[in-house]
């Protein structure tokens, strides 16, 4: 029998998270090179589309008390299934849930763990995982010395194509008394719409916007682009925007397809959170601002002139 890779499928309100499907993709790529077999495991109550995951088989641990996340119950069940199925490698998405769950599972399996992987290679039969460190200022290639291995993959890196869906056989395992020593009892949705950590397009504003009210421009631009609103620390500290929107070293790390920075100077701690974005656009009236060093396209002008014009132009081409 082939060795196994197990992918954890994360759900919220019964909907599968995109980051998990990206983890499936990364796992399938690796499995092909190693001739391994890929299985998926999920935990929750009712979950849609488990059968559309691109693996042969999905095992779903089910109980209505498991609809919300529980560190204790989820880690027990995933580790138990990993042992039972003798999985050698585990994959998780590097999401808030994945970051909480994967390390606990790794200890139960005595497995080495590598977080936030952006690339996998095989060298002399060893899996070499690449991950950014020092807030993206350096990259490391890391190998796991233990037989069992746990990886979390950075969202938006192993991007999905249409062929990604499959027809999986779903096996439901009813859980009788989950270990709810830690339990999520409530979810409080933030005011904003789309979270920067999950968005494919982000429009961020900085101190160059002068005052909180002017963020309307950023919101409008984000809306025409169908993206999320982000912020620099300067404007979060000033109380213009909530901390949940902060991008950077002490905020969120994002890698969207498009990142638009408006009135942001490009301090090293801000770049730390967004430098791996695929395309970066900078709008800043100072042509020497460091943000232009990493931007693909820049306009060195006044945001209050450029952004409204950009919104108009986008509306035109999208019409």
């Amino acid at each position: 029998m082939a060795n196994k890779i197990l992918v954890f499928i994360e759900q919220r309100n019964g909907q599968i998270k995109r980051a998990s499907l990206e983890a499936v993709k990364a796992a399938n790529n690796l499995a092909e090179k190693l001739s391994y077999e890929v299985t998926a495991v999920s935990v929750g109550n009712e979950v849609s589309d488990l059968d559309k995951i691109n693996v042969q088989k999905v095992v779903h641990y089910k109980n209505n008390e498991l609809e919300n996340y529980s560190t204790s119950a989820y880690s027990d069940l995933v580790a138990e299934f990993a042992k039972e199925s003798d999985a050698e490698i585990l994959f998780f998405g590097n999401t808030a849930l994945g970051k909480d769950l994967a390390p606990r599972v790794s200890v139960k399996l005595e497995a080495g763990i590598i977080m936030d992987v952006v690339e996998f290679n095989i060298n002399d039969g060893n899996i070499i995982a690449s991950r950014p460190v020092y807030a993206g200022k350096a990259l490391t290639n890391v190998k796991v010395n233990t037989k069992k291995k746990v990886f979390t993959v950075r969202p938006n890196v192993f991007s999905l194509s249409d062929e990604e869906s499959g027809s999986a056989q779903v096996e439901i395992k009813e859980v009788s008394s989950p270990n709810l020593a830690c339990k999520v009892v409530e979810y409080k949705k933030a005011g904003g719409k789309l979270d920067v950590a999950e968005a494919d397009i982000i429009v961020s504003g900085g101190r160059g916007l002068k005052e909180a009210g002017n963020f309307k421009l950023i919101e409008d631009l984000a809306e025409v682009l169908g993206g999320a609103v982000g912020a620099s620390r300067a404007v979060v500290d000033a109380g213009w925007r909530p901390h949940g929107e902060q991008v950077g070293q002490t905020g969120k790390t994002v890698s969207p397809t498009l990142y638009v920075a408006v009135g942001i100077s490009g301090a090293i701690q801000h770049l730390a959170g967004m430098r791996s974005s695929k395309y970066i656009v900078a709008i800043n009236k100072d042509a020497d601002a460091p943000i232009f060093q990493i931007a693909d396209y820049g306009i060195a002008g006044d945001a209050f002139e450029i952004v409204p014009a950009l919104i108009e132009e986008l509306k035109k081409v999208k019409a």
């Binding site: 190998k143 693909d296 820049g298």
Partner: peptide, 18 residues
């Protein structure tokens, strides 16, 4: 359990066009 085999600087991003 895990071991860094190499650390390097990320490929510098070409500054784009203004």
């Amino acid at each position: 359990f895990v071991e860094v085999v190499e650390m390097k600087k990320p490929a510098p991003k070409q500054a784009g066009k203004i």
